[in-house]
């Protein structure tokens, strides 16, 4: 049974940026790409659990603020050390001006 949760308003995220979304004891990162597509991954870097929301989005990659590990936020793939483990990704939809994620 899909569980769709409202994460934020679509305009709460600037293009080529991300916001943090906490739900229960979990934390997520919601991204808006340069071409205005939305994506969602786990919010913590797989290397040392830093919040990715403090990092930098460049094109389709998020760079961790702590050690500059990078991930492709569309697929979660770890692209640069020190991250070796990919991020979990979650389906996203836009409805009525809000970003919804399926967890």
């Amino acid at each position: 049974m899909p569980n769709w949760i409202r994460a934020c308003g679509a305009n709460d995220v600037e293009a080529e940026d991300l916001v943090r979304f906490d739900h229960g004891d979990r934390t997520f990162a919601v991204y808006r790409s340069p071409d205005d597509e939305y994506f969602c991954t786990d919010g913590l870097c797989t290397h040392e659990q830093a919040h990715l929301a403090d990092g930098l989005v460049m094109d389709y990659e998020i760079e961790c603020p702590k050690h500059n590990a990078t991930f492709d936020y569309r697929t979660g793939e770890a692209k640069r050390a020190p991250a070796c483990i990919s991020l979990a990704t979650y389906p996203v939809k836009i409805e009525a001006g809000s970003v919804w994620i399926e967890i």
């Binding site: 290397h47 040392e48 702590k66 050690h67 050390a81 020190p82």
Partner: peptide, 13 residues
């Protein structure tokens, strides 16, 4: 280059 990348990551953590 690889050993020092990881060593330096720890230095920052």
């Amino acid at each position: 280059p690889h050993l020092w990348r990881w060593s330096h990551a720890r230095h920052h953590s």
